[in-house]
């Protein structure tokens, strides 16, 4: 307890602890495997796109997007443009008003917090030391 007693003279440590706690509490708690797409969105004046894997895998197997539609399995490696989507490629294979909502519902996909970098977010157990 002697070590703790020295804390009494160190209010800075208390501040540090509070700051640390605040830092942790404001950390992102995105759902596991949420992907942010923002290679071009904000440059073009739109919010970043949030792609929720959980929502899509209830409805489609991985192979649909990652084999049939050609999305590479590395967040940030796909340059997805609205032109392609409107032409029926990438998201546009489903987001065409038939299988899923049409591209004119801009804000439903472009729903991300401004300033987020592209990449994979979330993690219930790990935030991973990987290269994301």
């Amino acid at each position: 307890m002697r070590a703790f007693a020295s804390l009494r003279r160190m209010p800075a440590l208390v501040l540090l602890a509070v700051a640390l706690g605040t830092g942790v509490s404001t950390r992102s708690h995105a759902e596991y495997a949420d992907v942010v797409l923002n290679r071009t969105a904000e440059k073009e004046g739109m919010r970043p796109v949030v792609f929720p894997h959980w929502f899509h895998r209830i409805r489609f197997r991985c192979k649909v997007c990652h084999a049939e539609l050609g999305f590479k399995m590395r967040a940030g490696s796909n340059l997805v443009t609205m032109g392609d989507i409107i032409d029926g490629k990438f998201c546009g294979a489903c987001h065409n008003g038939e299988i899923a909502w049409a591209p004119e519902n801009c804000d439903l996909c472009h729903s991300g917090k401004p300033g987020l970098p592209p990449g994979i977010f979330g993690g219930h157990e790990t935030n991973g030391p990987g290269i994301w």
Partner: peptide, 18 residues
């Protein structure tokens, strides 16, 4: 509150919650 969606954006309230 998930840190990736804009809490002030119009999608909140329309998108399904996990």
């Amino acid at each position: 509150e998930d840190g990736v969606h804009d809490p002030n954006g119009p999608a909140i309230g329309l998108l399904q919650q996990p």
